[in-house]
């Protein structure tokens, strides 16, 4: 590992108090270094998604802390957490979660426009380049309902990469895809790690796929039980 981890979780816990109290995650420690492909596996309902939401600042821990590039995040105001999500983290969910009324390109432009760093023309050029790098140059002007499942998922990846995040977090990104599309998406994620030195964290049921990651962590009953890494 070189330098500060991009994301580090320390004694992370999340309990839900309410009508049905539940412990989603407890005592989780984890660090994600640049250039790592990390796979989170575990049985259904074990807390994989919950862990990913905490790492991605989508949810607030009830105990412990998540550090992004060394900075504690749990006490930051919501807008500051949103800004970190916008700039440094990218999300891909099992279902594509594209905005249905907008074209693929417009969906990819959304985070860039929200950040507002580039000129309109530069944003468009970058959006098209991203779609091109994912083999979607011909589909930039199509709306999500005009795309296949695998194409939509690649658009979602392009959108997650829009602001050039250091970490990509994906919750079962291939869960709904056929073997061919799964391979395609996996190859893209692999390239992000190997060629672009980003960190990729995926939650997956697919143990064969997980085995091809650099590291694996297994979650059972809200705890990280073992970590199997290669290299």
């Amino acid at each position: 590992m070189n330098g500060t981890p991009l994301i580090r979780a320390e004694n992370l816990g999340r309990v839900i108090t309410g009508e049905v109290p539940a412990t989603l995650i407890t005592g989780a420690d984890l660090a994600v270094a640049p250039g790592t492909f990390l796979a989170i596996t575990g049985p259904s309902g074990s807390g994989k998604s919950s862990l990913l939401y905490l790492l991605g600042l989508l949810d607030l821990p009830t105990t412990g802390e998540v550090y992004v590039e060394g900075r504690a995040t749990s006490r930051l105001p919501e807008d500051a957490r949103a800004a970190i999500r916008l700039e440094k983290l990218g999300f891909v969910f099992q279902f594509h979660f594209l905005l249905p009324e907008f074209t693929a390109l417009e969906n990819v432009l959304l985070p860039m426009r929200a950040l507002g760093r580039l000129t309109g023309a530069a944003m468009e050029a970058r959006g098209l380049a991203l779609l091109g790098s994912l083999g979607l140059e011909a589909h930039a002007r199509k709306r999500p309902d005009q795309l296949s499942g695998g194409q939509r998922q690649r658009v979602a990846i392009a959108r997650a990469l829009a602001n050039d995040p250091a970490v990509l977090l994906a919750d079962e990104p291939t869960g709904n895809l056929d073997t061919h599309s799964t391979e395609q998406v996996f190859a893209i994620l692999r390239r992000l790690v190997d060629a672009e030195k980003r960190a990729v964290v995926i939650v997956t049921h697919d143990l064969a796929l997980a085995a091809r990651a650099d590291r694996q962590v297994r979650v059972v009953d809200g705890r990280i039980v073992d970590e199997a890494g290669q290299a």
């Binding site: 807008d79 999500r85 700039e87």
Partner: peptide, 16 residues
């Protein structure tokens, strides 16, 4: 609701 959740998860502020 879903679109709002997507936008917020991407990092759009509540104000926006």
């Amino acid at each position: 609701t879903r679109d709002i959740a997507i936008m917020k998860s991407l990092g759009l502020t509540e104000r926006l």
